[in-house]
Design a protein around this nucleic acid. Structure first.
Lengths: 228, 228
DNA sequence: TAGATTGTTAATCGATTAACAATC
DNA sequence: TAGATTGTTAATCGATTAACAATC
């Protein structure tokens, strides 16, 4: 079981997790294609663009209904909007951030979020030196206040950007405050109740996979010191 | 095909990508367990800890050799070191960073990296306002200088932390400079030659999967406003 | 209409898990 | 030795891909 895998009991309609992950990739593609002024795209053209098998694309969509017209293809903008709706990214989503360090600042400054109707509505830290500072528009609050503050805000998504040593205890606080979905940047396996969903982002993991493949790769003739 | 999937032609010995990804998870577990003073662990105990099936753990390891002793289990520290070596995280790995914004600063400040023998050896940007500034220990250099600078450094790993609009062209520069593995934070599907490996980190994708499951989740009786 | 392309079923492929002989 | 636990094979499960009738 992958650390990012959602257990069957939680998912309602059994849409495979890889399918859900690919939906975001399709959005990226459709965005690019739309910017290039294209209004209609076939699954074959998308395969060419995104490197994702045309059958897989159609199969992925089939979990959610019908989206294209035989002989024609998919209306780019329409499909974009419908996938956005499937992911519930068409409605405002409030998020809490705990950890106002470098990573927290980067996340707070990430414009992609407001584009996508994802709104950071509060930021917390337990370091007195950081409490009271501004993180983007937000005042950094003490993490002890999270329950009281989220009673007002009602955010159900929490972003965990604290050091590994604090991650588990902060997760407990988040959940007590009403958070039901956690995006975890700490390199630790969080223990959470079954009604809470966790996704992990682990830079070190990504880099280790790259390192593995790098060494496994055949050293081709090209001298990496020179321009290829 | 997942955007993070490595095509069969590239991988040498056909270790499944999910297996490689789990190796980093095992390292996290072993780290935690070692800190708790435990010296030996069984696959069953690890299943309990990490929520990863004991058979899967043993199977994953079997791609690389024998690591445990029947009737006893695995020596925590030894296994940690051997997995580290498998991932080539036991040797120094040099990395270039392009994009000295908030995210770049967060990555440069990420201590996990030096712990893991991953060394950021140069940072670049194309914004004159950022060039010349310090990012941690590093001076931010103009991205045009990447080939000349990496001729000295010989880094093969590149971290791409620039806006989507610049990502593809910067990837081309990185590859020309000798980069063979890219960690991409931009929400775009990079087109790279087959000898270059890409892994994508997409915060919006992670959040969209969380949003999907959040809405799909049965609204349990508990009032999220109160402490659970 | 003929050509193109969908949505979906069936076939393939690969990953996960269970079972168990080997072994400490 | 008896009990525990590995490494590995076989069975299961699920995801990917190919094929094709339906349809624009």
């Amino acid at each position: 079981m992958d650390a990012n895998e959602i257990r069957p009991a939680i998912t309602a309609n059994r849409v495979p997790t890889p399918t859900l992950e690919r939906l975001a990739t399709y959005l990226k593609c459709l965005h690019d294609v739309a910017q290039a002024g294209v209004t209609t795209i076939s699954s074959a053209a998308l395969q060419e663009m995104a490197g994702i098998n045309a059958s897989q694309f159609r199969k992925d969509l089939s979990y959610f209904g019908e989206f294209g017209r035989p002989g024609v293809g998919y209306h780019v903008e329409d499909l974009h909007d419908r996938i956005t709706a499937i992911l519930h990214m068409d409605v405002d989503q409030r998020m809490l951030l705990v950890g106002a360090g470098n990573l927290g600042a980067a996340l707070a400054g990430y414009t992609g979020m407001s584009d996508e109707r994802l709104h950071l509505v509060a930021a917390f830290d337990n370091d007195p030196a950081r409490i009271g500072r501004k993180l983007g528009q937000l005042d950094v609050k003490p993490v002890e206040a999270i329950t009281a503050i989220n009673a007002e805000l009602g955010a159900r998504i929490g972003i965990l950007a604290v050091p590994r040593s604090a991650a588990q205890s902060v997760a407990v606080l988040m959940i007590a405050a009403g958070v039901r979905a956690i995006l975890n940047f700490a390199p630790i396996i969080l223990r959470v109740p079954s009604h809470v969903i966790v996704r992990n982002v682990c830079v070190t993991q990504e880099l280790s996979v790259l390192c593995y493949h790098l060494e496994a790769m055949p050293t081709d003739g090209t001298d990496p010191q020179r321009e290829g």
